[in-house]
Amino acid sequence: MAKHRLVVARPVPPAVTDRARSEFDAVLSDGADMPPDAVVQALADHKAEALFFSSNLKLNAGLIAQLPQSVRVAATCSVGFDHIDVPAARARGLVVTNTPEVLTDCTADLAFMLLLCACRRAWEHTEVMRAGWRRSFGMRDMLGIQASGKTIGIVGFGRIGRAVAQRARGFNMRVLYTDTARVAPELEQGAAFVPTLRELLPRCPIISLHAPGGAATDKLMNAETIGLLPRGAVLVNAARGSLVDEDALIDALQSGQLAAAGLDVFRKEPDFDTRLAALPNVFLTPHMGSATTETRNAMGFRALDNIEAVLAGNPAIDPLWS
């Protein structure tokens, strides 16, 4: 039987490339991301049935309208799908899938790393070392915040939020969470549901965001909500940059309302607000929540699994809608 025809629109890890080659008649991007017109051209030239892409390619209504009729499934190698126009894709009859679950632990690990690095002022301290450690510290200099034993508020108690809660328990932290609804008690593992963000924030010296992006959560953390946190709180965001009003965040980090923040995501990436990079009390990473070899392989495999399922006439494993 002939192999199914696939276009992979951006470079992927070697193990994923190997599998795409062996199981598909695949056209692979040549070391660089394909721009949208090149994607359309490659799909047409190759009479492709499937598109493998990720968040750099905006699958908007315009692009969807240009997709050749041969394309039946588009698999984004990401858990987020704010780069996809879902109504337009549905109207076109395109199946679109993402890669949930496989990056849960990896992202939770990074969120917790940011939490510890922010609390313990890791950026300032690593800079001291890079300057050759030419200072001695008194007993009250450069003190950090101990995370252990504190209350953590988790905003968005999906898979990643719950995985962060599990890590927090190892630090004897009290876990509070808010979400659109309370989760099943067996998923709470002792975490306490707080119905609204406004009730949650005043109780949380540490807050970690794990909500999806999109209009409903845009600037969830703004001057007013940041002001509801206890003074000197620590904010962690490894979810979506759109969740935070960065002007308000910068003000709060400068005023001391926030003692520190750990950020893996920004409103604009990669052209983030460089005022953040001038602050000492932030720990910044370049959207690397899922950046381990194992996880990136697993994400790529999951995207390929979804494509194979759909092209074999089976339901998608991770459809964006059903």
């Binding site: 951006r10 890890p13 991301d33 968040s55 750099n56 370049p286 950046a291 990136r296 994400m299």
Partner: peptide
């Protein structure tokens, strides 16, 4: 910007 193979740990 984000890339699938950037800074894999």
């Amino acid at each position: 910007g984000w890339a699938p193979t950037q800074l894999l740990g």
